Computed example of a mutant assay.
Amino acid sequence: MIVMSIAGVDPSGGAGVFADLKTFQAIGVYGTGIVTALTSQNPYKFFSTQPVSPEYIEEQIDSVMDAYEVEFIKTGMLYSPEIIKLTAKKIREYNLKAVVDPVMVATSGGDLTGGDIADAFNRHLLPNSILTTPNVSEAERLSGIKINSKEDAVKATELIDCNCFITGGHLDGINVINIDDEITIKKQELIETDNLHGSGCNLSSAITAYLAKNNSLMDSCLKAMDYVYEGIKNGNYGTLIAKI
C-alpha cells in the first residue's frame, strides 16, 4: 500500500510532508512525498516560504508514478493557483483519489499562499477530489459564508463542491462531515494544549492512510479523528504506531 503526500516542507517536522510521512508509517502504509514549497517555521513562529516551480513538482510526481502504483494521495500546502491547477491535472492523468487539506495559513500564523487561492481550490482541485478537510477559517473562504455555529458549518459543507469534513477545533469541538450529502456530526472534547502544530496535516494524511487500508471514507474519517486526538493528547503523533 503506497500513498502520496503533495505538500510543503516544515523543517521542524510537525507539519507538511515530514509529518505526513510519519503518519503514513505509523498507520502502516508506505509514504511518498512531493515537495511544493520550502518553509522556515517552527511550531511557534513562521519566517518565510520558498515555492518550488510547477514544472519541478510535475517531474517529482511523474518520477514517483513511474515506479509505484499509487491510488490515494493527500494534498497540503500548494501555495499558488498554478500549483493547484497542476495538481488537479495530475490527479486526472493518473486517476488518483485525493484528500485535500486546503492549507492557507500556518498554525503559527504565517500566510502559506501566494495570494487568494480559495477560488483555485473551488474551480480546479475540489471537483477532482474525494474529500476536503478544512478548518473553520478555510471552510469560510471556500464556502463564502461565516461559520459561527453547527448549522453554519452544515450549510458550508453543502456549498463546497466536494465531500467535506470541517474540523471542530474552532467550533467547540463539533466536527461536521458531509459525505454524499449525508451529514454526520461528531463532537470531541477539546484539549487544553499548545500541541496543535500540524494537526490538520496529520488528519488528512491519516484519512489517506486508512483509505489505502481498505476502510470506507467515513470509517477513515472517524479513525483519523481518533488518531489525531491521541496525538494531541500525548504530544507526539509519531509514537502512535503501537496504538493503531
Rank of each mutant, 00 (worst) to 15 (best):
K22M: 13
A7S: 14
F24A: 06
I34W: 08
S12T: 09
A37K: 00
G14D: 11
I27V: 04
A26N: 13
S5T: 15
G14W: 04
A19G: 10
G16T: 12
T36G: 10
P11E: 01
T32D: 13
G8S: 09
S12I: 02
G8V: 06
I34S: 01
A26Y: 03
Q25D: 11
G13L: 01
K22T: 10
G16I: 13
I6S: 14
A37C: 13
G13S: 05
T32I: 15
G14R: 04
Q25N: 10
A19R: 09
I6Y: 08
T23N: 07
G31C: 09
P11K: 01
G8H: 04
G8N: 08
G14F: 03
S40P: 00
P11A: 09
D10P: 04
P11N: 08
F18L: 15
S12Q: 07
G14V: 07
M4N: 09
G33M: 12
Y30D: 08
P11T: 01
V9G: 00
S40A: 15
T32K: 14
S40K: 04
L38Y: 07
T23G: 02
I27R: 03
G13P: 00
F18H: 11
T23C: 10
I6F: 14
F18Y: 11
D10C: 08
S5L: 14
T32L: 15
V29T: 11
A37I: 01
G33A: 15
G33R: 02
S40Q: 09
A26T: 11
G16R: 14
P11R: 00
G28I: 11
M4D: 08
G16Q: 11
T39N: 03
S5M: 09
T32M: 15
T36A: 07
I6M: 10
G16C: 11
T39P: 07
G16D: 10
G14I: 03
A37M: 07
G31R: 06
V17S: 15
Q25L: 11
G28D: 07
K22A: 12
T39M: 06
V29Y: 00
T39E: 02
Q25F: 07
D10W: 01
Q25I: 01
T23I: 14
Y30R: 05
L21I: 14
A19Y: 05
D10K: 03
T32Y: 12
